[in-house]
Every structure is written in structure tokens, then in C-alpha cells.
Amino acid sequence: MYWLFNSSLGRKFIMSITGTCLVLFLLFHMCMNLVLVFSTEAYDMICEFLGANWYAVVATLGLAGLAALHILYGTLLTLQNKSARGSQGYSSGNKTKTEWSAKNMYVLGLFILLGLVIHLCNFWYKMQFAELIGSPDAVAAGSGLVIELFSKAVYVVIYLLWLFALWFHLTHGVWSAFQTLGWNNKTWYRRLHGISCIVATIIAIGFAAAPIYFGVESLLNGIMTLY
């Protein structure tokens, strides 16, 4: 088990496994959000189901652990790679035509983390966390929070920017996870790259549906505010 922590391939293995689990969570979370576009009652039922029940709390803790590992190892690997590169850079720059996202995964990750903090303050803090500490202000029905938040133009823009960064992160991340796990060859590279773009696009569009739908709705009803 020690190899997981002291070998480069072990550390990458942790990155790919945690990343894959987070992608699966995103797919689940996205399906939940799509429900809201069709029915606020159904969405509130899901929120009720995922409140401060023991299984939801356990799952939240597991998810937090996965995210923390992914961020921790991302930081560790980035620092190691920086020192492996050496202090002297190239004066003529690097003109290799690599994908932009592949070279900026850490910056994209930090941006996603920033969005995540805002997102947790917007929802999780007022819902599950408030319920856990027994606050009287705890919100059980999430639909009201979502509709209220996306009647503010700033939040619609922030969430869309956040999803844009996530899209870039996933177009590289998904195929990269397969590559790191060794599930790739010359034929599958093209397929996996395609799958990566499709998964990233499905997730980005699926998540963008709620802010766009409720943003436009509030705009049409004339209740949209700036912030």
C-alpha cells in the first residue's frame, strides 16, 4: 500500500481514482438539478431525502474526503513537478501545441474550488449544515433557494463561468484518468478523447440548465436584480 504515496504512479493513481469518483458524483448531482427545471415539488422531495439523514451525512463526508484528497494531491504533484522542472525556464517559451486545459489543470482546479466555496455557502451551509447544527433557519426545500439565487444576475454569471472552467477541467481530466489507470492505447486515445468532451459537455450543459432557466424566468417576470 505504501507505493500509493511514495511513487509518482501511485500519486497519479490517487488523482485518477478520486477524479473519477467526483465525475460520477457530478453526473448524479446534475441529474438532481435537472429535476428542478421540470418540477419544484420533485426537487424538494429529493432535498428532503438528502437532508441531515445518516446516509446523506455519510455520503457528504465521503465526498468531502474525495475532494480533499484530489485537491491535496493536485497541490502536491504540482509542487513536485515545479521543482522537477528546475528554476531556469526557457527564454524562447514553450511552443509545443498541447491542449490549453492540459497545461492549466491546477489553475482551473483552483478556480473550480473558489466556485465550490461560493456554492457551498449558497446552498449546503443553509441546508444540510444548518439542519445538522439544529439551526431554526435551516431550509429543507431547496427549490426556493435556487430560484431566489438565480434571480440575481451576478450569480447566474458566476455559476456559468464556474461551469466553463469545469468543462475545460473535465475535457482533459476524464481521458487523463483512463490514461493514468493504463486503459488507453493508440485506438482508444481518440475514442477516450471524444468521450471526455461528450461527458464534459453533458455535465456543463446539465448544470447550466438551472441557472439559465431560472435566470431567464426571473428576467421575463421582471424580478431579476443585479446581486
Binding site: 509518482s8 504512479l9 500519486r11 497519479k12 504533484l77 513536485q80 513537478n81 522537477a84 522542472r85 514553450n94 509545443t96 501545441k97 498541447t98 491542449e99 492540459a102 497545461k103 489543470m105 482533459h172 481521458w175 487523463s176 490514461q179 493514468t180 489507470l181 493504463g182 486503459w183 488507453n184 492505447n185 493508440k186 486515445y189
Partner: peptide, 28 residues
């Protein structure tokens, strides 16, 4: 040496066109 992050810069610059499918094989 650093940790591979699958940027593919290596295979794009390799004078012999060695493919990163070899990296996948090594990982495997």
C-alpha cells in the same frame, strides 16, 4: 523527474514519434 500529467507535449516533440500509448502500458 516529475510526475506525468498527460499533456502529450512529449509525444508531440519526440523526434521518433514514440506514442503515449507506451505510458498507458507502463501505468497498466
Amino acid at each position: 523527474f516529475g510526475n506525468c500529467t498527460n499533456t502529450r507535449a512529449c509525444e508531440l516533440e519526440c523526434p521518433k514519434g514514440v506514442s503515449i500509448s507506451n505510458i498507458a502500458r507502463l501505468n497498466r
